[in-house]
């Protein structure tokens, strides 16, 4: 049952990721990214990480993707124009990526000692996560609050429309 669920949602996840690459319109790519993130949340649940799964749905599939879709709508992004890649890159790159990926997958599957994960083997409930987060990782946690504050200020500053300079240029009064 565990394996079947893993395979089904892994297949959905991979299909979403490939669809993200195949689509030309950004809004289609954004929606397939939502599919990837939702199925990844199920994978986290299968690994016993309940808190991470909930945060994945709320923060990633909710907040971040809404931000992306909002910007796509705001900028009225259309179908992207493709530029032609060089011939050498395609001839060498595609087999290279395939060979590298197969090598990594083979190494992981054959040589990694073969530990297995059972359902509920490591309970990642909010209480246990919070104990780690607020005892061992308190300093990094506080640092991320500063990071988020700086990110907010940077986003507001960058997206702010610059005011027209000079005393004579159109001040509405």
């Amino acid at each position: 049952m565990h394996l079947v669920l893993f395979l089904v949602f892994g297949a959905i996840c991979t299909a979403g990721a490939v669809n993200l690459l195949a689509q030309t319109h950004p809004i289609s790519s954004a929606l397939s990214l939502v599919v990837v993130m939702a199925s990844l949340a199920v994978e986290y649940l299968l690994l016993g990480a309940e808190f991470v799964a909930a945060v994945q749905v709320i923060v990633y599939a909710g907040a971040v993707m809404v931000l992306f879709v909002f910007v796509i709508m705001l900028l009225n992004a259309g179908i992207e124009e493709r530029t032609k890649g060089s011939h050498v890159a395609i001839v060498l790159g595609v087999p290279g990526v395939l060979a590298g990926g197969l090598l990594i997958a083979w190494t992981l599957l054959k040589r990694s000692g073969g530990g297995t994960v059972a359902l509920g083997s490591l309970p990642g409930a909010p209480q246990t996560i919070a104990k780690q987060l607020f005892h061992e990782f308190l300093l990094p946690f506080e640092l991320t609050s500063i990071l988020v504050l700086i990110a907010i200020m940077g986003a507001v500053f960058l997206a702010n429309r610059p005011e027209p300079k000079g005393p004579a240029t159109g001040k509405e009064s």
Partner: peptide, 23 residues
């Protein structure tokens, strides 16, 4: 559980990066 806590930090960094990058 440290790995799951690190996922939390990665998510924070990703959210900050998305906000600044989209701006």
């Amino acid at each position: 559980l440290s790995g799951q806590v690190f996922v939390f930090f990665v998510m924070v960094v990703a959210a900050a990066e998305a906000a600044v990058g989209l701006a």
